[in-house]
């Protein structure tokens, strides 16, 4: 058996047994207390889709590999595909073409590895410049613009709430209001000063 759980510290192959699964046992290699929990997949060979026999005569073959037997149909376009071509995306089994197309369209949240958190970015842009308030003359409109620009952008995959965007807009609008009041105050002051002479 070549599959084994390995000590995270010294990489020594561990013997999985009930004792190790339930309690911490010192690793033979490095002495670190380790709990090693094995699942049935540990002793299962890697699924090898290439191991299937070539397509026999009169058998349906893969759209992409005519020499290989079809194993399933793409759930999007219906093409027959072999085990090599089949890609599981969440509940669906797709062919490579539909996979590429879907990925380009951003349609599979299951394949996403990163998402920009515009709600955090806008909130930072609305709050941090308060430490140096003259900067808000530029950052407040920018925060409002970005908040609306990315309003529809998907937020977090795990927590799609938009309250930070709302707060960012509220804070930025308050800053803009402050600037407008300041501008009115200054201009009426100048106006009054000009006519007093």
């Amino acid at each position: 058996m070549d599959a084994a759980l390995r000590c995270p510290k010294c990489q020594l192959a561990l013997v999985a047994d009930r004792l190790r699964e339930a309690t911490f046992v010192a690793c033979f290699g490095c002495g670190t207390p380790i709990r090693a929990i094995a699942f049935p997949a540990l002793n299962r060979p890697l699924r090898d889709p290439a191991a299937a026999a070539p397509a026999g005569e009169g058998e349906s073959s893969c759209f992409f590999h005519t020499s290989r037997p079809a194993q399933s149909a793409c759930e999007q376009c219906g093409r027959f595909i072999c085990g090599l071509c089949e890609v599981e995306v969440g509940p669906k089994k797709l062919c490579p073409t539909c996979l590429t197309a879907g990925r380009e369209a951003g349609g599979f949240s299951q394949l996403e590895t990163t998402r920009a958190r515009w709600d955090y970015r806008c909130l930072l842009l609305a709050l941090v410049p308060l430490l140096f308030w003259p900067a808000t003359l530029i950052t407040a409109p920018a925060a409002v613009f970005l908040a609306f620009r990315f309003w529809k952008a998907p937020g977090s995959l795990v927590n799609p709430s938009r309250w930070r965007l709302v707060l960012a807009v509220a804070v930025a609008v308050a800053q803009l209001a402050g600037w407008i009041i300041l501008a009115i105050a200054v201009s009426t002051d100048l106006f009054n000063g000009g006519t007093a002479e």
Binding site: L5, L14, I34, R117
Partner: peptide, 23 residues
């Protein structure tokens, strides 16, 4: 999450060979 973006890694339950816990 680094303050600006979230990154995701997925591990399918059927592929898990084991869990190791180190004190």
């Amino acid at each position: 999450f680094d303050g600006f973006s979230e990154n995701y890694r997925r591990f399918y339950l059927r592929d898990l060979q084991g869990l190791l816990v180190q004190r």
